[in-house]
Simulated assay, not measured.
Amino acid sequence: MTARRLALVTGAAQGIGAAVVRALAHEGLRVAATDLNAGDLRDLVTGLTAAGHDVHGLVLDVRDTTAVHRAVREVEDSLGPIDVLVNVAGILRVGPVLETTDADWAAVFDVNATGVFRLSRAVARCMVGRRRGAIVTVASNAAGVPRMDLGAYAASKAAAVHFTRCLGLELAGSGIRCNVVSPGSTDTPMQRGMWTRDTDAAAVVAGRPEAFKVGIPLGRIADAEDVAAAVVFLASDAARHITMHDLYVDGGATLGA
């Protein structure tokens, strides 16, 4: 009997990360779900385990290189070889560049870019010897299209995108695929944290000409499950000949840029 594939997911406690964990579990994968938010992570794992899925929770701070290596080693020793890594962990700092502090810039990059580097490096080192594996980084369409008040976030996501594609080039000869999913506005706690009025969701769909922001042609904000579906595809054998690709899931908000 062939062992089921094992996925490690960061930023798994809520939003897109939690949707990715659910989607992978429903596809029959075993999942090691990691996050710094122990409470929400425990609730997610408890619910999925009760439903019969093989999901394990592990508290992890992606800013800590030692903790990252320890977590990857623990997962490989206790659950088996990691077949899929999904980098979802991310934080947001909003504001004009001229008001962005060094601390804000460093904090955003430490999670959104360097965190992706730390996890990908640690897991890829395990995958290379097995000559198989898939790495998917969840970035943002802001990585490819300038956004006002998102300078640090957009730059960090752009770094994560290009790092993942460079990694894909280096690892292609070892049979390891590295791809990116770039969501647009998605109904998550991070997105809702930027809203201050009941009409903000409609404004996101309509666009903001004064901020040079196009609306969403498909007329809706994405659900986290829309993004998770793209991740599942790129992590699957159905995408076996796709690597170094950046798949936008934004309802056309970047006009295919």
Rank of each mutant, 00 (worst) to 15 (best):
G28Y: 07
D237A: 11
L218I: 14
L36A: 11
T137P: 01
S182Y: 02
L98G: 12
A202C: 05
T101W: 03
E210K: 13
G207H: 09
T34C: 08
I176D: 00
A230P: 03
A67M: 09
R130F: 02
E27Y: 05
V45Q: 02
V84A: 08
M190P: 02
S140D: 03
A3T: 15
V21C: 07
A253Y: 00
A139F: 01
N141W: 02
N112P: 01
G151K: 02
E99W: 12
V88S: 04
L24I: 07
V116F: 00
A23P: 06
T254Q: 04
Y153T: 02
R121G: 03
M190I: 12
A239H: 01
L218H: 13
A32I: 09
Q191E: 12
F233Y: 14
A103W: 09
P81L: 12
H241A: 14
A50D: 12
R132F: 08
K213W: 10
R30A: 15
L92N: 12
V181P: 01
V214Y: 13
L29M: 03
A23D: 09
T254F: 01
R208Q: 15
A18Y: 01
T188L: 01
S185H: 10
D237R: 08
H56S: 12
G80N: 05
D35T: 12
G184V: 07
A124G: 13
V128T: 09
N141C: 15
P96C: 09
